[in-house]
Amino acid sequence: MATKMFNYTKSILERVSFDSKLFCKELEKAVKVLLPYEIEQLRDWLFQYTKEKPELRHCLAFIN
């Protein structure tokens, strides 16, 4: 079940990555529902994902 939520979160973030404000909002919601180890996985994924989308880097503040 937990992996499903993590994968769902990634898919949502990928879908809203066209809008940095929406991306930040969804990331903030994800941090509230994910487990601590999932947040670590999400952080790693986000660092890789935002390499190609530097306009989203400021949203990483919600995960630190």
Rank of each mutant, 00 (worst) to 15 (best):
E38T: 03
C59N: 02
T50M: 07
L42N: 08
C59S: 03
R43F: 02
M5W: 04
K29Q: 14
P36F: 00
K25I: 09
K53L: 11
A2E: 15
Y8H: 13
H58I: 01
M1G: 15
L60I: 04
A30N: 07
P36D: 06
D44V: 11
K21N: 14
R57W: 00
L34F: 04
T50K: 01
T3E: 15
E55F: 10
K25M: 12
Y37C: 01
L13S: 06
L13A: 08
E38Q: 15
P36W: 00
F23N: 06
V33H: 13
L13Q: 05
Q41W: 05
K10I: 15
E55L: 04
M1I: 11
S17A: 15
K53C: 03
V16L: 05
F18A: 13
T3M: 14
E14F: 02
V16I: 12
I39L: 01
F18E: 10
S11L: 09
L35M: 08
C59D: 03
K29G: 07
E26T: 02
F18G: 14
K29W: 08
Y8N: 12
K4M: 07
I39A: 01
E52C: 07
Y49W: 08
L22S: 13
Y49R: 00
C24V: 02
D44N: 13
K4R: 10
T3I: 10
E38H: 14
Q41V: 03
L42S: 05
F23H: 06
D19S: 13
R57I: 08
D44T: 13
L42A: 06
K25N: 14
K53D: 01
I63P: 11
K51R: 11
L35E: 13
T9E: 00
V16Y: 06
V16R: 04
L60Y: 03
E14Q: 14
E14C: 08
F23L: 04
M1V: 12
C59T: 00
T50P: 06
P54E: 05
L46T: 01
L46F: 02
I12Y: 00
L35I: 05
V31I: 12
N7T: 10
W45F: 14
S11G: 01
W45C: 07
R43V: 02
E14N: 10
A2I: 02
K21S: 12
F6E: 09
V31D: 03
V31G: 05
N7F: 06
F47W: 07
E14H: 06
D44Y: 08
F23P: 10
A61M: 06
E55S: 11
K10N: 03
L46W: 04
K29H: 13
Q48C: 05
S17P: 09
Y49L: 02
F6G: 04
R15G: 13
S11E: 15
